[in-house]
Design a protein around this nucleic acid. Structure first.
Lengths: 122, 122
DNA sequence: AATATATATGCGGATATACGCATATAGTTC
DNA sequence: GAACTATATGCGTATATCCGCATATATATT
């Protein structure tokens, strides 16, 4: 029962649902996710980690970046079912539409550096 | 997006998953649910309410009791999908097995009164 | 090796969630 | 209508969750 609770908990959050919808469009590195959702780096990283830990995502390193993508062959059956359910979700939602729009311009090495590190240096 | 979040949040809780598994066995009044899960009345009632509000359950009055049951024709598609997913969950879990066992002896007007009101009167 | 960059994580604070207790509410029975 | 009973709910508390800030870690580049 722990498994399914963990799986559901991973998904019942707006940020993570948005991430899932973005990754269903295409795989992304962390900085692309933060650009698409317009959020801070730590938030993107942490929520990607939660989704990965629950079995929704896989990650691979590619140079400097860590590329996250939907894990279609996840050992977690619940995650697979839920992912399929999400795919059917229509994009009538305003927030998701904006994410998708920003995703088009998102690229590796984006303004992410600015949004996190630069700011903290003042 | 609010809908799906609400739906998922309703399900990602151990108590409510247990309730769902019990109601998949058979419809129950509140006091039967509290007997099956061995929990207090307020907890049973509140979580049944959350599941109903999310579209998993329907309730009807029958005499003194309110009978809750799985809403197979829910307007909430996510709830329907998730319910079907839950049905496939095997009962290898210890807690769920105990609930199911207690459910056999559960009946309307059970020890529920004792567990809540009597106790508070000391 | 030193610097730079992309990602991960410890921490504190704000908010949300779940529970038990007590009580309110609504329907039943006499 | 008074007493009884099944269910719902206000409230306080304990715990969990989420975020941003700051920093740590790991890889790349020179």
């Amino acid at each position: 029962m722990e498994d399914i609770i963990k799986t559901l908990k991973a998904l019942c959050d707006e940020t993570r649902l948005r991430i899932m919808k973005v990754l269903l469009e295409r795989e992304c590195c962390v900085c692309e996710v933060m650009q698409a959702l317009d959020i801070f780096q730590s938030r993107a990283s942490r929520n990607l980690g939660i989704l990965q830990d629950a079995g929704f995502l896989t990650a691979r390193r590619e140079g400097t970046w860590i590329i996250y993508s939907i894990d279609r062959d996840s050992a977690n059956h619940y995650a697979q079912s839920l992912t399929k359910m999400l795919e059917k979700l229509s994009l009538d939602n305003e927030i998701l539409a904006q994410d998708k729009e920003r995703l088009k311009n998102a690229a590796r090495v984006g303004p992410g550096y600015v949004r996190n590190h630069r700011l903290s240096r003042k």
